[in-house]
Design a protein around this nucleic acid. Structure first.
Lengths: 348, 348
DNA sequence: CTGAAAGCGCTTACAG
DNA sequence: CTGAAAGCGCTTACAG
């Protein structure tokens, strides 16, 4: 028995439309018609083609077809995220995937770990692979490098943080308003000495949340003791340490606002070590698993990563469908979830 | 000024190698040589080509090139997971991504939600997109559908659960041994009435963990009270309910072994509601965030999802590099992490 | 209803 | 060192 593959390549190659055509004794175009369900093929030929497909276990090469097909969509989109392993990124991917699936679109995803160079490299790789669109959590402070690509028709939607030096759609959480609501909650429970624990101010969301903290304090005319404002705190361990330092001040805070979930965890652990968990209020920004199982359970200003991802994907597909209205920034509201830690009154 | 694109398509299309060649007044092949750094191009022409590339912001279409290139690799692999949003899946993707990145390979990922039909559909989609290889957490009980694809040269590595009706590489956790170690830990702390809380026995890992539970009990000659063996428990809420039922038995267990992290969370919450957290031992299988912040902190048999993902990716790439040794199943060891809940002695 | 030719963006195999 | 032709797997535009 001879090799079915016409070009005489080794036998273990995937069958092509040419092999099917040869076996069914029809033209390439007829196979193409059957595969794409174009109709207008006689039952006789349709049958022969289908049997050949079955027999060879032929699967059309979608990538090859998109090369010539009008529009030339590859039915893939690229996701540039902070870290696929963190719950926020993971929830975004999942939500995007669900929207994409309905359209038969696959998702390529990659982590950037806050490295601007890696952001650009990943975008370049996705573009080289001809993705139809991009969803990006920007790490760098300049997205102007995307301008040429966008001109050539690849839409981009930013998530979590707005782009800089580029006019593009974005979907962000209500960082400033949400933080203000969380802090206001503490003030209404009687606190006036409220500490702020935040990440690098260079990260836009961290800066916005600090602004929200200041908004709330100003609106209620509560003085901010700058000694209680701690920025540049990274990771659980640093948050634990910072919390312990804060609580050991001569005039310590009665409440903590931790502007990120990991920092809230650190604050919780720090309070616990000092035995101050039960008498110090704590509100965190961004929910985390098991927050409700801690004691006291942790009150948070919850983001909606699933909602953010869904909206980002919908925005991207709207652009792919031809929408060329002005770029918009969607702000997804946060939700204050009261669980106990945020409702502790100040010590007498 | 005329359109640079020779074919007269609308101007906002991405420039091609042809546009570059025209602008640099060289042949296609010369552009190709420069782009691929083949050398053997005069400085004169190299310069002209590079300037044209710069000027047009040309980015080679990798997908098109792989169509003709020998080997025809697309430098993409497909990941079929349970749910991208769950920590186990997320950790696996991240680990795979890191290995793939070193080779300039991108990862396509999708969730299957324990739906066998979705597993097959996703695999078919990945294959249609010509991925170079697949990493799969199987949902269905039959992977024979992959045999034809594998014959045509796409390697597949299974993760978390071995494939059925298909001879392929796999990377799994030491479910049976790990569970036995966790249960043995409870026995050594004096427990004899130990409850087992597990997921659907149809899921291989759940079944294996129950076997491990039975192994440990048999080895120490502890009788199993079948009334304390609860299978088919799904999700936190069911685990909470099951735990409450168990603790309300006339002769309740003194220790619980929860064979999955979500079930451990439910067991913890269930004990807490009954005020039995501090006097009932609990060991969970598979670690979870914040397990160390609960009180008591939860003792677990930790899997190593990162290690599993890394090993799976390495195995896949080894196959892509031509390794055709016999298929192997790698068993990644678990680690018992003692945190408090597993070291509680039985009530007197 | 059916097919032969040309082409998608790029590389291979060959010739100079 | 350089290029013209053929081809990767498929679709388009045209002809019958």
């Amino acid at each position: 028995m001879t090799t079915l593959s016409g070009s005489g390549r080794p036998g273990n190659t995937r069958p092509t439309i040419r092999d099917v055509a040869a076996l069914a004794r029809v033209s390439l175009k007829t196979v193409s018609r059957v595969v794409n369900g174009e109709g207008s093929v006689s039952d006789e030929l349709t049958g022969r083609v289908q049997r050949a497909i079955e027999q060879l276990d032929f699967r059309p090469n979608f990538t090859a077809s998109s090369l010539r097909r009008t529009g030339g969509r590859t039915k893939t989109i690229g996701l540039v995220l902070e870290d696929l392993a963190n719950p926020f990124s993971a929830a975004v991917v999942r939500a995007v995937e669900d929207v994409a699936r309905q359209r038969g679109v696959m998702v390529l995803a990659g982590s950037v770990d806050e490295d601007p160079a890696r952001e650009r490299a990943l975008v370049a790789d996705f573009l080289a692979h001809s993705v139809d669109g991009l969803i990006i959590v920007p790490a760098g402070a300049d997205q102007s490098y995307l301008a040429p690509g966008r001109r050539s028709g690849t839409p981009v939607v930013f998530v979590d943080r707005p782009p800089q030096n580029l006019n593009a759609d974005a979907v962000v959480a209500a960082n400033r308003d949400g933080a203000a609501i969380g802090v206001d909650h503490l003030i209404r429970h009687g606190h006036r000495r409220i500490a702020f624990i935040g990440d690098l101010p260079a990260i836009r969301t961290a800066a916005d949340r600090e602004l929200g903290f200041r908004d709330a304090m100003a609106r209620r005319e509560v003085d901010i003791d700058e000694a209680l404002v701690r920025r540049n705190v990274r990771g659980v361990d640093e948050a634990i340490e910072v919390t312990q330092r804060l609580m050991e001040l001569p005039d310590p805070p009665t409440a903590l606002f931790a502007a990120q979930n990991v920092l809230a965890l650190g604050a919780y652990a720090g309070l616990r070590r000092l035995g101050r968990r039960a008498d110090t209020a704590l509100v965190g920004f961004d929910d985390f698993p098991v927050a409700d199982l801690l004691e006291p359970a942790v009150t948070v200003v919850a983001q909606n990563p699933g909602g953010i991802g869904t909206l980002a994907a919908e925005t991207l597909f709207r652009r792919l469908d031809g929408d060329d209205d002005a770029m918009v920034t969607h702000v997804v509201p946060t939700e204050l979830i009261q669980r106990g830690s945020g409702e502790i009154a100040p010590r007498a």
